[in-house]
Design a protein around this nucleic acid. Structure first.
Lengths: 189, 189
DNA sequence: TGGATACTTGGTTGTAGCAAGCAGGTAGCG
DNA sequence: CGCTACCTGCTTGCTACAACCAAGTATCCA
């Protein structure tokens, strides 16, 4: 998935110096923000799962990383359906991702003793090791990027992003919250 | 594709209040940032191309929107290869995207009079109309999200994002800059 | 004529959703 | 008790998008 194509910085922020009196200035602001978001989104996507964080035959892609990540945060074993809600993804998508991880030995899967239909998923020891390696490797990149940032700046951008994520339309999928749900069904890319 | 799965805000920012003295606090900071970026990235992805911005048989997806966007910014007609560089995408990817848009009448394509191999691409009138509609519709969403933000806050997050995009590893594809280019070919999204 | 260049096409991978279906569980009814 | 009807958790098939690499074609230039 990748996000949206981004322009090179060379020509970034068109019309940046157009302080027109009309309401267009507002449009400029959101245009800049949209572009900046796209830029950063693509950069984050490119982080991927660095191959050097993986051992021999291991295969974890970006989605798999997030599955491991959530599984780790859950601590206890979770159901597939719960995991899908946490990831805000379709059950089928998560089902396939988990299958790969189980086959790779990174996730353990047992039948739920209390419900024969369900299964309980958890990180295996190997999965945790892989997760740690991948996470550290991604952290390194961010660390590198934030080298010149003051702690205050880091906090500022993080909280601003959290707020923005909160203010943007929520996912219609996992939890169809009552928020300003304008999301057209066809547009959901 | 979309970006990475995001956790619901309910459990966001684990360990947020752990101001440990050790270097671990730094890891926390980047973890929060990573999560926030993911959150926002997915929200932006969900923006998609609102169906109501499109007329009858028109079909423009997220990628197509960016092609139109760049084409608009270029003003003059551009070559496919130049467009691919601008978009930081593979030539083949852009070739297919453009073909769709040409077939849909949103982009005009003429042979370059000076080079029979090349073609010159430009927005058609209809393409411009569609672009305007889609852009406006995406703007509306961002406007809505930024309703409670002060102008200073908007500028702050935008410039912080621009800086972050600049500090993150560049795309290895379009311009394989010498920057901290560690990107494994297999891991690329 | 022999590269180099511009683009196209085929193939593959990754991500994701919807819909259909299977299997296991639960509840109502005779 | 046993049967039927329904509900739920998960899997699988299909479709679509996005992006890459590699191979092919057509054109230009030296």
């Amino acid at each position: 998935m990748p996000l949206d194509p981004a322009p090179s910085l060379a020509s970034a922020l068109p019309g940046a110096a157009r302080p027109g009196p009309a309401g267009g200035g507002d449009d400029d602001a959101v245009d800049h923000l949209e572009r900046a978001l796209t830029l950063v989104g693509r950069a984050i996507l490119r982080l991927g799962v660095p191959a050097h964080a993986l051992a021999e035959g291991e295969h974890v892609d970006r989605s798999g990383y997030w599955v491991l990540h959530r599984l780790d945060e859950c601590g206890a074993a979770v159901r597939l359906s719960d995991l899908a809600v946490l990831l805000e993804l379709d059950l089928s998508t998560v089902s396939r991702q988990v299958r790969q991880l189980v086959e790779g030995g990174l996730v353990t899967r047992e039948p739920d003793p209390g419900d024969g239909r369900a299964c309980l998923l958890a990180l295996s020891a190997r999965g945790r090791a892989v997760l740690d390696a991948v996470r550290q490797s991604r952290r390194d990149v961010l660390h590198q990027a934030l080298r010149g940032w003051s702690p205050a700046q880091r906090v500022a951008i993080t909280s601003a992003l959290v707020r923005l994520a909160d203010d943007l339309p929520p996912a219609t999928h996992g939890a169809p919250g009552p928020g300003r749900g304008e999301e057209p069904p066809g547009g959901g890319a």
